[in-house]
Design a protein around this nucleic acid. Structure first.
Lengths: 227, 227
DNA sequence: CCGTGTGAAACACTTCACAGCT
DNA sequence: AGCTGTGAAGTGTTTCACACGG
């Protein structure tokens, strides 16, 4: 990852362990793919293999949501997909405000995976007068001054920060003050937020650094064998 | 994250726990910032506060690299930053090949955070004849057929996949066959790779889904209080 | 008979508390 | 006196192995 968790969900997450929550979207995606392929029933072994986890872990994860399988048979793909959707809040439609419409912000705004999973890009905000007023994915880019209005008008609970690092904390403060309670942060800074606000951080350079660590270890082993 | 770990580093990562490896880039970034500000010595308490972790965790993490602090004093910023750099392989310069130069690929190619940390964008590859030949950050976009040549010529050990999901596995196979042993995957699929190849996955939709889960829980608590 | 659901065991990670060095 | 480095305790996560129900 390198998506990395920054803040725990708050107190207790309805009894579902955080490690499980992180895997639910994965299961949901695999189930969607199975459904599209016409599969009606799936065993924990098949589903786990498709998701790349162990069957035991999959069953334990699902057991935290309830008993949605049939012993001796497996899981009904449609039913299980719906239960996970409900647990993840994907039956709800979430308005998302994206701040910072540079290369990355544009990529995010154009990402088809959002719309198909109940996330609606409700507003695009940027500081740059060159960008403001332009249209992107049927959404007009609005100036930074409109941030609070956009959040309130759209009842956006989720904000995405794709600004340079220096602007991120100020944008974050304004989003939170306007009512946002979950933030996905792509800026390379650790955001300070009030209790009750969730922040997840995606740091592209960090991901590469983690790969480099393992890469170096592999190279070290190799040369140790060679020399 | 949510950047999520897909493959463990192989067997044992030189004794450094994976949870620690994931935080080393964070410490490295904080130390760089401190150094830029002219700080020469830092205590575990200060460093931990800046990184957003507990002092105990920071000291335990650093203890896996060696004893680089001075009791009663703290850590020398320069020295510790260098030790972490070395551990992460940032003293080495890594050639990175990016495949899929859509919105996201362009954002990645333009990301300044890479160059400053020892990652060099060595080649940009795309399938689209419209894109091939164009210049981006001083690097010409080359056709898919050039993939193997680019990897070999640049000795690229790290590949970034920013293609649509359908193309990802095929691109991955070709990268690995050409010599890539670490992959950062932005496509929403689980890549199958040979033993010894590390894959990290960054899935933007998954991150939002994890936030939505916590958001829903918060909303549920709220209405339970209200109702 | 087969595959889920789940206690119990094993493992990994984090926090605690303090010994030891400067 | 102060802060690191670390065994020990505590907590969370994964795996095991089997009872249970269709």
């Amino acid at each position: 990852m390198s998506t990395s968790r920054v803040e725990p969900g708050g107190s207790r997450s309805r009894g579902v362990p955080e490690a499980t929550v992180v895997r639910l979207p994965l299961y949901h995606r695999v189930l969607s793919a199975l459904r599209d392929r016409g599969t009606r029933v799936v065993s924990s072994e098949q589903l786990a293999a498709a998701a790349g986890v162990s069957p035991a872990m999959l069953r334990k994860d699902l057991s935290h949501l309830g008993s949605y399988g049939t012993r001796g048979v497996g899981y009904d793909v449609d039913y299980l997909a719906f239960q996970i959707s409900r647990e993840l809040g994907l039956t709800h439609d979430w308005a998302v405000v994206i701040v910072g419409i540079g290369n990355l912000g544009q990529a995010l705004a154009s990402y088809a995976g959002f719309a198909s999973r109940g996330f609606r890009v409700a507003a695009l905000i940027d500081d740059d007068p060159e960008l403001v007023g332009r249209q992107l994915q049927g959404c007009r880019i609005r100036p930074l001054a409109d941030l609070e209005d956009a959040v309130r008008a759209e009842h956006a609970a989720i904000g995405v920060i794709a600004t340079p690092g220096a602007a991120a904390q100020s944008v974050c403060d304004r989003l939170v003050a306007a009512g946002v309670t979950s933030i996905l942060n792509f800026a390379p800074v650790r955001l300070r937020v009030a209790e009750g606000v969730d922040v997840r951080k995606v740091d592209l350079a960090m991901e590469l650094q983690i790969l480099a660590f393992h890469e170096q270890r592999k190279a070290g082993l190799h040369s140790a064998v060679a020399g």
